[in-house]
Design a protein around this nucleic acid. Structure first.
Length: 161
DNA sequence: GCCAACGTTGGC
DNA sequence: GCCAACGTTGGC
């Protein structure tokens, strides 16, 4: 089983939006980057664990966890001229872009912020902490995943939750 | 709102 | 195939 981090802007689609989706499950559409596409198409499998990261928010950080609920299938929003994610290069008979479905698992009592993550030695190598790292879906190690969850839950307790 | 970092595009 | 220009991401 692999572990991932998915970025999302909470003003567009937050972990609460995921939780409120039918069966807590939603397609992760609109990824239009080849490196991310390759990870989605070639590496992700049903059951993989996912950290949901809120970007472009105040503060930014990991909001909770999810699972890959369905392995890669064509991102049909690329075929819809009315979609923000339309891309004429992608055809139904030869899809360029792919997506997975993600199922809500846990919402942390508070965000484990990027600032806090930088203070955690176990996360020193984490991709999301690297300067200029823009990849919107990233691999994380099992150890990093567990460290994020452990610290995030401790935050909740400290806050009285 | 700024701007560094990065990916993509397109002229040559 | 190089690389400058451009657009986007995303932390600050």
């Amino acid at each position: 089983m692999k572990h991932w981090l998915f970025k999302t802007e909470p003003s567009e689609f937050s972990i609460d939006d995921l939780r409120r989706s039918p069966q807590g499950t939603a397609p992760w559409d609109g990824i239009r980057n080849y490196q991310a596409r390759n990870l989605i198409r070639d590496e992700m499998a049903e059951g993989d664990r996912v950290l949901i990261y809120h970007s472009s928010s105040d503060p930014t950080g990991v909001a909770g966890t999810a699972r890959i609920a369905r392995a890669a299938y064509p991102d049909h929003t690329a075929w819809d001229p009315k979609s923000d994610y339309y891309d004429s290069r992608s055809k139904p008979e030869a899809p360029t872009w792919f997506m997975v479905d993600v199922r809500f698992e846990e919402r942390f009592a508070g965000l484990l912020t990027l600032v806090a993550m930088r203070e955690i030695p176990a996360l020193r190598e984490m991709i999301v902490l690297r300067k200029g790292m823009r990849l919107s879906v990233q691999p994380v190690t099992a150890a990093e995943f567990e460290a994020v969850v452990r610290h995030a839950r401790a935050l909740g307790k400290a806050a009285g939750g």
